[in-house]
Design a protein around this nucleic acid. Sequence first.
DNA 1: TCGAAGCGGAATGTTTCGTTCCGTTTGAAC
DNA 2: GTTCAAACGGAACGAAACATTCCGCTTCGA
Lengths: 205, 205
Amino acid sequence: MTSAAPGRGKQAVRNNVAILAAAREVFLADQRAPISAVAERAGVGISALYRRYAGKEDLLRTLCHDGLRTFIGEAERAGAESDGWTALERFLTGVVEADVHSLTVHLAGTFTPTAEMRADAARANALAGALFERARPHMRQGVALDDIAMLLEMCAAVRVADPGRTTALRRRYLSVLLDGLRAGGSLPGPPPTRSEVNGRWRQPS
Amino acid sequence: MTSAAPGRGKQAVRNNVAILAAAREVFLADQRAPISAVAERAGVGISALYRRYAGKEDLLRTLCHDGLRTFIGEAERAGAESDGWTALERFLTGVVEADVHSLTVHLAGTFTPTAEMRADAARANALAGALFERARPHMRQGVALDDIAMLLEMCAAVRVADPGRTTALRRRYLSVLLDGLRAGGSLPGPPPTRSEVNGRWRQPS
DNA sequence: TCGAAGCGGAATGTTTCGTTCCGTTTGAAC
DNA sequence: GTTCAAACGGAACGAAACATTCCGCTTCGA
């Protein structure tokens, strides 16, 4: 599909990217947005969407999978830091800035995950777990890996009209949270369980 | 409507409460829930709803206004604490436990506020501002009142299937946030502006 | 026994969307 | 310049989700 096809090859290549970018923006702003909003934002007809994706669910799944891969990439890159705390900090900052959480957790439940996605999710979890373990000595007692997932969720909840400001504010509150993780004393109650954190994913039927 | 009416007075009184409680539960779980879900949860027919409220918007407005009053009540009660930090802490804990935020901010934009609501909102703001000022000496530099609004929003984003666990987890992360607020050092970027925080409210047409 | 206050829930009308379909456009190959 | 498969745009269609209305039935104080 590079340029050797008869017909509108160039436009098709451009649209491949435009559609994914538009879908990202639209579904980040509203996970329940209609698919027509994606087409409109991409400056494209609806048929251009259906030529590429079998349906809405397929598009959402693709988007979510992309987010998962970004998550994995951030984790791998941050793992190169020599200091454990710095690594975790860099990882979380990267994830928050990419707004990966809105692409993954918030879209979960709107589609049936593939086997490959579940494998990637497991890998993502392992990487995050490793980062967490390295950073644990720098944190207060009782903090668990699943706490981190919830903190990311909290950051994703920060949202104002301007996307740039949204990112800036998230950085601000991630900073508060990270400082809170290093404070002394113990935390009230137990951390979330694995199933509480993963409760959003739809089971493959 | 106590018991002097002909017809089904007793049932009506019971339903008054049941419907509001059901609406609270349903709309806390999903702000876009259909009104029929409220009736079902209350164990009541749809007409019982429409006898009391002019429509969905009216019900949502009532619910939101109740939340606003709870917010004010918490602020007044917490204001009685002698220590400024303890007062803020108690206030925020109370607000988070009552899940007031999901009832107010999350429902804003789904109805047109009344003049009385806007007056109450102003009063709520003033009370929160007073609590914040008293606590400010205990907090790191650069924290603003509007930051507090965002922190509440972040807590409201914590949600798992079991409501009891949801409350417990929110307490846990509120604790992290509060410790983060007292940490040293400055925060990245400016706090949110008033309009960023209030952007959700629909203007009275 | 009466009848007004309440109620349940089917019926209605509307809006919102996902998906399909078909006529049109594009551009590489000849 | 002509051809034709690849792509498109967007109207049309059908299904689903909802808010609201309506009407016949129930309850219970007088």
